[in-house]
Design a binder for these strands. Structure first.
Length: 530
RNA sequence: UGACCGAUGGUGUAACUGGCAACACAUCUGAUUUUGAUUCAGAAAAGUCCAGGUUCGAGCCCUGGUCGGUCAACCA
């Protein structure tokens, strides 16, 4: 009996196309980001699907920037997007820009005008919206719909030359104002924008709309399978209409459900708001769902790719539990990263029978799950820091750690027995005292003692102080966007906890930024920069 | 009241295309453990949105409903 997961619907389609010899068995996909923000975990699914499918079927993938809206797009975003894709481990065959096709798209538009399938409309945005009707009410023809081909050719050329102001005229396809599909009600193809474009500068003052740029770009590149998200489903008939009328390469569009994660937001508009209104420190704030934030937080490319694999591909709406993403990092990091000692909330432990000023080096495993990772030595002395909650004055039942008269093992060191503790005037515990059992040295234990608890520690004199930032989910509710009111009302006020007085093992001093480091029993820390 | 799409354990995704619903995450037990982590073993959890129909047999096919999503930006 096979437990292998069946192919997803896209794999089935592509396998079938190859079997039928469509496009000579060639597979070319594309990843088409708009450079108006940073890539997030949702994009990583699209990246994994597009690049993964091509790899799987012996094809390649183009990276194409969908840069047809100069008002929102910037080179900074182009650069970050390229860096993120590379970091995820994918290579594109060609780096393309919709803006490179502006001349071709212009020619396509002229061709449609000459076929009587496009016209220049002088109506205002409001008038056009009003004439569009509604899903249940058919639209009405624009008074400019019946202009002659000659007039349209002339007007469109003058639009391109800059004779008109923004919004004064648009070019529309002449399709069907009564169509039940709103996208067929004479969709806009070009608008006038006297705005500098991040790549073409001031060369153009008319810019194509998505519907007249995306499909044509696919066709120009001879993309075989153009994969997008569900909300573009209703655009598909128009996608095909343009390709058919212009007799271009027959790229086909396929839609899949986008990735949603709970306890976060995924829309670029909302993410931009969080950045601009300083709810986070930037696009790469570790609480953000962006790829750059996940990278900063210690996620590995492998863990994200694996996550995309586990999430699957289908056509129904979904909200993935962020716990699955977290599982994927832990699974990966457990196998490969160095364990370190770090005491986040320090409490001094004085070993009374260990000579003051003496120090010895004790070996400890770098990674208990990987025997090949070797060992390193940790300094041990009479004054240590342990975690404050590894001591309880009055232990509750089933508390295996330190309390008066009880014993615990200090990880990779000795068994100690608590002999007492000090409190300040306010009743705060300031110091815990203990005696160590010399025969219980880790690896050479002759003591015969059995203890249930093992705790982590650092030598007070040898540890280095560190600021530790603990990050939690950014929102208090699973789906902030579907809640009443503004989504920002649901920001988790405790999503960032900064601990100033932590002590970490000296090992960390040698670590480069970006190393991921699961701390013994505490979780995962990642060294960063200030 | 329009068009298009979707509906399988708590969450995702499967089910050799019509053959007694599986995998992962989450949850709960138990074992191991120099960290209550990890690892390992096991349990609970859907009878496939509803109602009909076709069939020896339906999660898969048909019909009609219900619920949910998307579409009326000079955004993509």
């Amino acid at each position: 009996m096979s437990v292998e997961k069946g192919p997803n619907f896209l794999e089935e389609i592509i396998a079938e196309d190859i079997k039928n010899g469509k496009h000579g068995g060639r597979v070319l996909t594309r990843f088409p980001p708009e450079p108006n923000g940073y890539l997030h975990i949702g994009h990583s699914k699209s990246i994994c699907v597009n690049f993964g499918l091509a790899q799987q079927f012996g094809g390649t993938t183009n990276l194409r920037f969908d840069d047809t809206n100069p008002e929102k797009e910037e080179t900074e975003y182009v650069d970050s997007i390229k860096a993120d894709i590379k970091w995820l481990g994918f290579e594109w065959a060609k780096e393309c820009y919709a803006s490179d096709y502006f001349p071709k798209l212009y020619d396509f538009a002229v061709r449609l005008i000459k076929m009587g399938l496009a016209y220049v409309d002088d109506s205002s945005a409001e008038e056009i919206a009003a004439m569009k009707g509604s899903p249940t009410v058919p639209g009405t023809d624009s008074p400019y719909r019946s202009r002659t081909i000659e007039e349209n050719v002339d007007l469109f050329e003058r639009m391109r030359k800059g004779e008109f102001k923004d919004g004064e005229k648009v070019l529309r396809a002449k399709v069907d104002m009564a169509s039940p599909n709103m996208h067929f009600r004479d969709p806009l193809m070009y608008r006038i924008r006297h705005t500098e474009h991040h790549r073409t500068g001031n060369e153009w003052c008319i810019y194509p709309m998505y519907d007249f740029a995306h499909g044509q770009s696919d066709a120009i590149e001879e993309i075989t399978h153009s994969i997008c998200t569900l909300e573009f489903e209703v655009h598909r008939p128009l996608y095909e209409w343009f390709i058919e009328k212009l007799e271009l390469f027959p790229s086909r569009q396929y839609e899949m459900a986008r990735l949603n994660l709970n306890y976060t937001v995924m829309s670029k508009r909302k993410l931009l708001q969080l950045v601009q209104e300083k709810h986070v420190s930037g696009w790469d704030d570790p609480r953000m769902p962006t790829i750059s934030a996940l990278r900063r937080r210690g996620y590995t490319p492998e863990s994200i790719r694996n996550f995309a694999e586990k999430v699957g591909v289908a056509r129904r709406e979904n909200i993935i539990d962020v716990g699955l993403l977290e599982f994927c990092v832990r699974e990966d990091l457990n196998k490969r990263s160095t364990r370190v000692m770090a005491v986040l909330d320090p409490l001094k432990l004085v070993i009374e029978n260990y000579p003051a000023g003496q120090m010895e080096l004790l070996p400890t495993e770098n990674n208990t799950e990987d025997p090949l990772s070797g060992t390193r030595e940790m300094p041990f002395s009479s004054e240590l820091f342990i975690e404050r909650d590894d001591f309880m004055e009055v232990p509750e039942k089933k508390y295996f750690r330190l309390s008066p008269g009880k014993m615990v093992r200090l990880k990779s060191a000795y068994i100690v027995e608590c002999t007492g503790f000090d409190k300040d005037e306010k009743g705060h515990i300031t110091v815990v005292r203990a005696r160590y059992i010399p025969e219980s040295k880790s690896g050479h234990d002759q003591s015969g003692l059995q203890v249930k608890g093992v705790i982590h520690w650092v030598s007070a004199a040898h540890a280095i102080k560190a600021e530790v930032r603990l990050y939690d989910r950014l929102f208090k509710v699973e789906d902030p966007s579907s809640e009443e009111g503004d989504f920002k009302e649901y920001i988790n006020p405790d999503s960032l906890q900064i601990i100033h007085r932590s002590h970490v093992g000296a090992l960390l001093r040698r670590c480069k930024a970006w190393r991921f480091l699961p701390v013994h029993a505490e979780g995962i820390l990642c060294t960063g920069y200030r």
